[in-house]
């Protein structure tokens, strides 16, 4: 526990000293929220809907920080530590790789939660966001999305050859998911065929669950995404621990 706490505080400080997560996980979601708010304001999502466009997008925006941390921050930090031989130095100490992975996981969890609180406050203050569904259900879905995205990141960071390949894999995962899964470009404005394609992205499924919880839609539609995300988490985290490479 001593090692865990010390590593968490130190690595958190180091992460704050680097500016990129502040930009991508803290600022970017707020900017996108504000843009959507300014453009669509309190307009209803579609004719006859009992929720606004912004409310419809809130679930998606809440995942931007998760993507930044899980698909960019996490794999790059881990692969970088391996490439710089910091992991090799740790291998000749009694540390367990699980501790190291857990510390980084929690750091990006903290970023995501800060971002969630921040966008909630902004959306509530300026556009009177109204969560119609069950808030616990929303939080449950949020953590599920977080775990599944982070486990992808752990897997990439844990087994990528070097930070360059981790960077490429991270970009391949990050940008399409961020743009096409509804996190930045609203799913609703996409043409039908495109919706069918992006449905294959795990994040799209996660966002559907979140959206259902914000808007109070029926949970029947979201059993599949939940199973998918749990499965993803189990598979990716098992791979990342089993095939973890120090060097």
């Amino acid at each position: 526990m001593k090692a865990f706490n010390t590593f968490l505080t130190t690595e958190l400080k180091l992460s704050f000293r680097g500016i990129d997560m502040f930009i991508f996980a803290i600022c970017m979601p707020v900017i996108i929220l504000v843009l959507i708010g300014i453009i669509n304001g309190n307009k209803v999502a579609f004719e006859g809907a009992n929720y606004t466009f912004l409310e419809q997008s809130f679930g998606a925006i809440s995942t931007i920080a998760i993507c930044a941390g899980g698909l960019m921050g996490l794999p790059l930090v881990l692969a970088g530590y391996r490439e710089q031989k910091i992991l090799k130095r740790l291998k000749v100490t009694p540390i367990s790789p699980i501790l190291l992975l857990a510390v980084q996981l929690i750091i990006y969890m903290i970023y995501s939660i800060i971002s969630l609180v921040l966008i909630f406050i902004v959306a509530k203050l300026f556009w009177n966001l109204n969560i119609k569904g069950n808030i616990l259900q929303f939080l449950g879905a949020y953590f599920l999305v977080m775990l599944s995205m982070f486990s992808i990141g752990l897997m990439v960071g844990g087994i990528a050859k070097n930070s360059k390949s981790a960077g490429s894999i991270a970009s391949i995962l990050y940008f399409p998911m961020l743009i096409f899964s509804g996190a930045t470009l609203p799913y609703e404005v996409m043409p039908g065929l495109m919706q069918k394609i992006v449905d294959l992205l795990p994040l799209t499924q996660g966002i559907k669950t979140l959206k259902a919880s914000v808007l109070g839609l029926s949970i029947d539609n979201v059993i599949f995404p939940i199973i998918l995300m749990i499965l993803l988490f189990v598979v990716c985290s098992t791979i990342s621990i089993k095939f973890f490479k120090w060097e």
């Binding site: 000293r17 680097g18 031989k85 910091i86 090799k88 130095r89 000749v92």
Partner: peptide, 14 residues
Amino acid sequence: IGVQFQETKYPDKI
């Protein structure tokens, strides 16, 4: 065991 590798590496900014 205490080890000093030829090039000891550490995180940036630590």
